[in-house]
Design a protein around this nucleic acid. Sequence first.
DNA 1: GATGAATGAGGGTTCATTCAT
DNA 2: GATGAATGAACCCTCATTCAT
Lengths: 209, 209, 209, 209
Amino acid sequence: MAHNDPQCKPLTRAQQQRRSDIVRAALKVFDRDGFEGARIEDVAREAEIAKGTVYLYFPNKQALLEGVVHEVISPEVDEVERTALDPQLSPGERLRRQIKIIGARLGSGDMKIILRLMMGEGPKNEELRKFYYHEVVERGMAAISQCLADGVRTGEFVKSADKIEPQVFAGTPLLAAVWGILFDDLAPLDVNKLLESHCEQLLTGLERR
Amino acid sequence: MAHNDPQCKPLTRAQQQRRSDIVRAALKVFDRDGFEGARIEDVAREAEIAKGTVYLYFPNKQALLEGVVHEVISPEVDEVERTALDPQLSPGERLRRQIKIIGARLGSGDMKIILRLMMGEGPKNEELRKFYYHEVVERGMAAISQCLADGVRTGEFVKSADKIEPQVFAGTPLLAAVWGILFDDLAPLDVNKLLESHCEQLLTGLERR
Amino acid sequence: MAHNDPQCKPLTRAQQQRRSDIVRAALKVFDRDGFEGARIEDVAREAEIAKGTVYLYFPNKQALLEGVVHEVISPEVDEVERTALDPQLSPGERLRRQIKIIGARLGSGDMKIILRLMMGEGPKNEELRKFYYHEVVERGMAAISQCLADGVRTGEFVKSADKIEPQVFAGTPLLAAVWGILFDDLAPLDVNKLLESHCEQLLTGLERR
Amino acid sequence: MAHNDPQCKPLTRAQQQRRSDIVRAALKVFDRDGFEGARIEDVAREAEIAKGTVYLYFPNKQALLEGVVHEVISPEVDEVERTALDPQLSPGERLRRQIKIIGARLGSGDMKIILRLMMGEGPKNEELRKFYYHEVVERGMAAISQCLADGVRTGEFVKSADKIEPQVFAGTPLLAAVWGILFDDLAPLDVNKLLESHCEQLLTGLERR
DNA sequence: GATGAATGAGGGTTCATTCAT
DNA sequence: GATGAATGAACCCTCATTCAT
């Protein structure tokens, strides 16, 4: 059958649904047990199908991981871009939103799991790394850079603002996500307040007057 | 024999050396294959000893992981604190140094591996999480907070500076480290320049005048 | 799958057959190598299945042992009771038969292997001990005691006969079994003759006139 | 060094002591864990020596087992024969004593352990089987037969008494020993009473008038 | 002789993957 | 297509045995 192979016949709607069920199940199990620790049988049970059925949709465990990463990321990034690019807002406001959304997305739910999977499996899987880089990082960085450039153009930001590496803005959202993965039980973090504070500090130095 | 058990007789110098060799070997193999993917046999081969010998020093693979984390972290943190706490420097200068060192340490060599291991195994291993939190995160955060408080006291920083969450300062160093793990082959990052820029942005909003 | 777990779905006929094949194979290998010396791989080869398949039917080696003991014992005991309880026979005759059958069963084939396994693993495994005691020993002792009581009631035996410990009657059959395990190549024993003689001696003192 | 090899120099007194210590330690550990389950290291610890030292006295684990069996059996058998062969007693009395002593010896302490070891390892080790047969079984059977023959000669027993297989007399003592190994916690057995009863039954049919 | 660190073959168990039904 | 029993490679860990000190 399918295997997400472009050669193959496109999936019927029901098959797409099933594929998606498997991905959701896998995401849950990967979150609980990590990628290596996850058993295909558990994924199948979680998806309420037989173990063999997983292999009708993904040729092997690696491909399942890739499927999970792809399927989770696309809608997330779309939403980030859609939400953040409101042309009615000033560049500064857009930048604040951007950062908040990146923080909220990275740190909550599915993307946090993906982040963890990336850290574990990325180094062994170039396709994963590339995909994540181009779909998430590059687009996120570009969106931030765009805000900076816009701000300079409108005069809201100081001239040098578009020289700033966008990574400076993304660091705290990433930290919040990592904190959520590792330390939330030891020292819960008020992510919103942190991101607010982060924006405040950075924008203070950016805005003219 | 030993097992790093405080109950046991202290290790001889030769034994400490061997234990350390095993830890170095494990670090290398964990880096290459991840924790779950690492085979004890490979660790042994890397350390140029027999498989069984590993078990003379660590009761199981988990303990080896913990040994690695402990042994790597302690000297790193010591060095960070030692380097950063030069009392001759102004609080602002100390803060810059702090961030640079955190970035350099997190992002280079052993601590990067530890970070990756933490992301993979931390969620399954509370002891690991706690250790890392108390030894690395808490101390790092405290050092940053200290700089902020000192700066306020000396009048170098604005009054509100000590209200800022130290995590704001640590985000970019963390991002640099994660970038180094995942994307350096796709888009190399000039970490020093990034951290410089990061300091610039943050301190601009912090310093009076 | 199954694991003989009462929680699980009942096994299909084919699965029962396979489970039984594994038990037979294990019995053979346990007999040849002892329990600890037996390798699961050998059991699998003997059953003409893959090593992993054994674990579809038994969660571990201990459980396989217990499975073997249970599966072998039940039909044996049933047969002993069935054969021995012919109500047409006099108590004395029933007692003779009983002893002969115990001797024959204990000493031949599967029960001899079980006896040997019990001696080796029983001390470490209470469930095994309990099972063997209740299924084999207790029922065997009860059957003998019943004969004695019946004989007293019918007047065939002297009054005091039902005070005799049934173990007195079971000793020689046990000895015959142990002898068969250990010394048959050194000094073959005519079990039938021995049991005959044993009955003769004991019944002489029991029967009135 | 020695290895109990007749080729080697005879052991010094201190060495004999140490060898004996190891045997006692091994007996204890074999009892607790069975032969296969016993670890040489535990034997060494029990004997309060280093693991390697065991190998100075026994070439391997099998030899240690043989050493244990040999060392335990000899004095036991000697004592049985010595105690039982009191020429002052009548053959009937000697037979009673014999049975009681066999029961007491087999069932208590070291010989019970040996019995269990024999059941487990005997089938794999002909030397062990032969040794036990010749040293224990054969001598025990001979002693019983001797009593029977003597009793016939003195007229105490019926003529046919020396046709009876001595195994008939040894069964109950063996059963008592096996019971002690397996079922004493489930249903304690009054061994003395049982053996008394056993003698009663058998001798009643043996003695003239 | 005594020690105990080192060795490495061996075996129980897991689980990704296959394939007959 | 869906199933889940079967497969067997892989890997952690144990422990009898060796040998340098």
